[in-house]
Every structure is written in C-alpha cells, then in structure tokens.
Amino acid sequence: MFKTKRVIFFLFPGLALLLLFYAGPLLGGIRYSLLDGTFENRFVGLDNYRRLWGNPMFLQGLRNTLELSLIGAPLLWLLSFLMASALSGIHPFGTFARSAVLLPYLAPASAMVLIWQVLFDYGGPLNRLLAALGAERIEWLSSGAMRAPILVMFLWKNLGLCVLVFMAALRSVSPSLYESAELDGITWLRKTFSITLPLILPSAYLVFILSWINAFKIFREVYFISGAYPAESVYTLQHYMNNLYSGLNYQMVTSAAYSFAAIALALFGVLFFLQQRAANELNG
C-alpha cells in the first residue's frame, strides 16, 4: 500500500472522465427536470415529473423494461448457475461446451437478427417443430408473443459469460469440502445452499450485476426486428427515451432518467442489503 499524494496522477484521467460524463452532469442535470424548457425556462417544481407519470407511453415503457429485466436477469442467473454446476461436476471440464458458450456474447445483435427472423418466422423451424408436435403455431414476431423470442435472444447472448464467471469461481472451491458432506449423504440442494453458494458469493453477486446491467439493454433486438415503434408488449423505456431525444425534449428525458434511477437504485439497494447481510452472517 502506497501512501502518497502522487496517487492523483493515476486517478486523474479516469476520474476526470467519470466526473465529466457521468457523475457531474448526473447531479447537475436535476436542474433540467425542474424547469419548463421554454424560452423563459421558468422553475416548475415537479410539474415535469407529474406530466411524465401521467404519460401512458412512459408507463408502458417503464413497465415493460422492468418486467423484462425482472424476468430475464434472475432467469439468466439461475440458468447459468445450473449450467456451471453441471459443467464443473465433469472432470475434466466439458471443453467443447465451455468454448462454445461465450461466442454469442461477442456476436453483434444486428448481425444475428436475420437468423432470428428465420427461426421465429410463422413458417420457420420453431413453428415447424410446434406443428409437428401437434401444437398451434404462434406469430412470434408480430404479436404479444414477441416477449418470448426477445427473452430467448437475451439468454442466448448472455448465458456464456455468466457461466464462465460461475465456473471460474467453482473451480476455486476445494473438492475436499464436499467429501464429508457427501459421506453424510446430504442432498444437492442442501450442498448448494450451505457449501457452494456461500463460498462463491462474490462471483454470484458479480453474475447478478452482469445480468442486471445487460437486462436493461433488452432493446436492441426489439429495435432491429420492429424498429422504433414496436408492439406494445415490447415497447421499452429506451424506445420512449429515444423518441424524446429526437424531439430534443430534455425536460422529459431528464425526468424519466431520474425516475428510473430512483427505481433502479431502490431495487439495487434492497439486493445490496440482502447480499451484505448474507456475507456478514458467513463471516460470523
């Protein structure tokens, strides 16, 4: 550990950029959300927020974004944990599976859209399978059913990275810890909750953050498939905000951002609290 004022030279470029593009205007921008945006720029208090929360498109976008991420992120977390556990149970690791899973994370969304359009077409392979099983075909890409393909694309893209993070953590858990537990014949569930998860808590938390950050980006695929004005069931907050930007409506943009920030931070605060409590319990 160094204790010197020269730390500022290392911190400066990164911190300056963080302050300039994120932290500074994040605080300074609150002003915008309280003005009326006309030539006189009068102070209007919470009027913008009141208008925003009365706007059905904002509410629709907010609800969809929250619903999609609250379904998508935990699902991703759970699936990647299960898959990583399965992969780590196999020695040596399933090398083929391991090298296959990360590639989707790197493939650009726009390059994959064509293939998704084929897969989820009304006459496409998926519906062919449904029909072969005797089920009703579904209009995946044009109706309220579009949420399912969007979630599939989200999971497809992000699964690999999350699996790798879990696997890196599982690899560091010594197998001897399980031996006595196995002698006692405890169940897999019990073993997972009382041995594995506590030991890999930091990584589990990191995967959660990754899923969380990426779940709010469930917009890209919707945008590439349905453009700026998609079906109501997949109209996200990002759509709403992009339309505000093109109208240069900074009052509403900032109000929307702060409203969403409050909700996201409240959610995150609860999770952070739970995670800290779990960590404290483990450390005695």
């Binding site: 500074g24 205007p25 994040l26 915008y32 900032t254 951002a257 996201a264 995150f268």
Partner: peptide, 19 residues
C-alpha cells in the same frame, strides 16, 4: 463507481448527452 455501474444505461446516457 459501483453505484454508477448499476445504474441502467437509460439513466447514465442522459448525463453523457448533457455534457
């Protein structure tokens, strides 16, 4: 930094645009 990291992109995009 952690707080900035967990803010959704829809939020952090706004300060960047202002700057």
């Amino acid at each position: 930094i952690v707080l900035l990291m967990v803010l959704p992109f829809q939020v952090t995009m706004v300060p960047s645009v202002l700057t």
